[in-house]
Simulated scan of single mutants.
Amino acid sequence: MTPQEFDAFYAASFSRLTGQLYAITGNWSEAQDVVQEAFIRAWDRRRTFDPGNAPEAWIRTTARRLAHSRWRRLARGLHLAGHHHRHEPSTVEPPTEEHLMLVTALRDLPEAQRIALVLHHMCDLSIEQVSAETCAGISTVKSRLARGRTALAARLSDRTPTSEEGKLRV
């Protein structure tokens, strides 16, 4: 299978496979993750795939096995931690008003500044790590952070949070 055929195969089957794995796993995020991982593994094998030999079945089987392996590791981890009964999935709290304000303000920033701010402040990467991940010099990262903070402060100054005197938490 050529790279172009693989791209067409991916575009035609990703959503369908994700829907199938969702039905298997019951978790949309998990289904997307395992299907994507299966496609990554298939990329290295694409030369051995013949479009007539059901490469979609290979992807589905691989994704299903990945989901099963993840489930086993999770179950083993819970067993080792002393959790012998099945827990209901935890609920996720809705985003706070402060979080929504921050995300909205970040969207208004230039992409380079937004990436630098998120990597440094939300992902807790050092300036050197941000520099390596973005392929930008350290002084460029420092400049993007300084400009981004200034622009973010200006955008947030007219949107006063309702709690904790302006402190934003993500």
Rank of each mutant, 00 (worst) to 15 (best):
L106C: 04
W28F: 14
L156S: 05
T2C: 01
T2A: 09
M122Y: 08
T61M: 05
L168A: 08
H87Y: 03
T150A: 15
D50R: 15
I40K: 09
V141Q: 04
D108C: 09
M1L: 15
F49W: 07
A12N: 11
I24V: 15
P55V: 11
T18N: 06
P94S: 10
D33M: 03
G52M: 06
A63F: 02
M1N: 10
P94L: 12
R73Q: 10
A12V: 01
A67K: 06
L74Y: 07
W71M: 09
Y10Q: 02
M101R: 14
A31K: 03
R41C: 05
G166P: 08
A23K: 15
P110L: 03
E128W: 00
E164Y: 02
P3A: 07
R16D: 11
R46H: 14
W28E: 15
Q32T: 11
G52I: 05
E37G: 08
A132V: 06
G19K: 06
P110Y: 02
I115P: 01
W58N: 00
T96Y: 00
A38P: 07
Q36H: 12
I115W: 04
Q36D: 01
L152H: 07
P55I: 05
A136L: 13
R149K: 14
T96Q: 05
R149D: 06
R41F: 05
F6S: 04
R107H: 13
A116V: 10
L145P: 05
I115T: 14
D7I: 09
S143D: 03
G148D: 04
N27D: 15
H79Y: 12
Y22N: 11
S13N: 15
T96D: 02
R169C: 07
A11K: 13
L125V: 04
Y10N: 04
S157Q: 08
S139L: 01
R76Y: 09
A105Q: 13
E133S: 10
M122W: 05
S139P: 00
W58K: 05
M122K: 06
E30M: 13
A8D: 08
L78G: 01
L119Y: 14
F9A: 00
A154C: 09
P51G: 02
P51A: 00
R155P: 00
R76T: 15
L66V: 01
R41Q: 14
E88C: 04
H85F: 05
T140W: 01
T18F: 04
A8H: 06
H79N: 07
H121L: 09
F9L: 03
S131M: 02
A23E: 13
T134Y: 02
S139H: 06
P95D: 03
V34E: 07
S90E: 12
I40F: 10
A54Q: 10
T48M: 01
W28Q: 11
I40R: 12
I138D: 00
G82E: 04
R65I: 01
E111R: 12
R86F: 05
R70V: 07
A67Q: 01
R41T: 01
R114H: 08
A112R: 10
I40C: 13
R46P: 12
V92A: 12
R73E: 14
A12E: 14
S29N: 14
H121F: 11
R47C: 04
R60H: 08
C135R: 10
I40L: 15
K142P: 02
E97A: 15
E133P: 00
